[in-house]
Amino acid sequence: DVEPGKFYKGVVTRIEKYGAFINLNEQVRGLLRPRDMISLRLENLNVGDEIIVQAIDVRPEKREIDFKYIP
């Protein structure tokens, strides 16, 4: 289970104008929005990159997770 405030290693699987989709595993995916990136820009991410993200909002009923990147 993903818990708000905890850090997780994930893989960038898709990049859109509104953010990057990060997979923690095959069943768990969330969104990293540009506003939640500190010292990292969306255009510097590539599909396949491994990054450490912090879960900031977890909505299991909608199967949605918002992430934050903190270097």
Rank of each mutant, 00 (worst) to 15 (best):
A55I: 15
N25C: 09
I38M: 12
G19W: 05
Y18T: 05
F21V: 10
F67V: 04
E16V: 14
G30C: 04
D1S: 14
R59H: 08
F7G: 03
V58K: 05
N23L: 08
D66V: 09
P4Y: 10
I56W: 10
R41V: 11
I56T: 10
P60W: 12
I52K: 06
F67W: 10
A20P: 00
I52L: 11
E26I: 13
Y69F: 12
A55T: 08
F67H: 02
R14A: 12
V12L: 03
A20S: 03
D1W: 15
G10F: 04
I56S: 08
K9E: 05
V47R: 06
T13D: 06
V28C: 08
I22S: 00
V47Y: 06
G30E: 01
G48Q: 04
I22E: 00
V28W: 15
N46C: 12
F67Q: 02
E26M: 13
G5R: 07
P71A: 10
V28K: 05
A20R: 01
I52F: 09
F67D: 01
D1Y: 15
P71G: 11
I38S: 12
S39I: 10
R59Y: 06
D57F: 12
N25S: 14
D36G: 04
E64H: 11
K62N: 10
L42R: 03
P34G: 10
K6T: 08
I56P: 01
E50Y: 15
G5A: 05
N44Y: 11
V12P: 00
P71K: 08
V2A: 05
Y18M: 06
S39E: 15
I65T: 03
E50H: 15
I51H: 01
Y8G: 00
N46R: 15
A20C: 06
G30N: 01
I15L: 11
R35F: 07
Q27K: 15
E64D: 06
P34E: 13
R33G: 02
M37S: 05
N44P: 03
M37L: 06
Y18R: 06
V28M: 10
I65R: 02
V2M: 06
P60K: 11
Y69H: 06
I70P: 04
E61H: 13
T13Q: 07
G30D: 01
K6V: 09
D49Y: 07
R33Y: 02
K68P: 01
L32C: 02
P4Q: 12
G10P: 00
L45S: 01
L32R: 01
G5P: 03
E61K: 11
D49C: 07
T13S: 13
P71S: 10
G10R: 00
E16L: 12
V11L: 11
D1E: 14
V11C: 08
Y69C: 03
E50Q: 14
V28G: 04
E3M: 15
P34C: 08
V12W: 02
E61Y: 07
I56R: 07
R41E: 11
Q54E: 07
Y69G: 03
Q54N: 04
P60L: 11
I51A: 00
V12R: 00
V28P: 02
N46H: 15
S39Q: 14
L24P: 00
N44A: 13
L32V: 03
V53M: 15
V28S: 07
V53T: 01
K62I: 10
L31Q: 02
G48R: 04
M37P: 02
V47C: 06
E26Y: 14
I15R: 03
L24V: 09
V2F: 11
V58R: 05
L24W: 03
K62Y: 09
E26L: 12
G19M: 04
D36R: 04
D36A: 06
L24M: 04
R59I: 04
D1N: 14
R33M: 04
K62G: 07
R63H: 14
K6W: 08
D66T: 10
I56N: 05
F7N: 07
G48H: 05
I51F: 04
E26D: 14
V11D: 02
V28Y: 10
G5L: 09
V58W: 08
L42D: 02
N25D: 10
Q54C: 10
R59W: 06
L24S: 01
I38C: 11
K68G: 14
N23A: 14
T13F: 07
Y69V: 04
F67Y: 02
L40G: 06
S39L: 12
V11E: 06
I38D: 13
I52S: 06
I38Q: 12
K9W: 14
G30Y: 02
D57S: 15
K6Q: 11
K17N: 13
L31V: 06
I65A: 06
L40S: 08
V58N: 06
D49G: 04
K62H: 09
I22G: 00
R14M: 08
V53G: 00
V47W: 06
I65C: 04
P71E: 08
V53I: 08
R14P: 00
Y18E: 07
P34H: 08
V2E: 02
L42W: 05
E61T: 11
K9Y: 11
R41P: 06
L24E: 00
E3T: 14
I15N: 00
I56F: 11
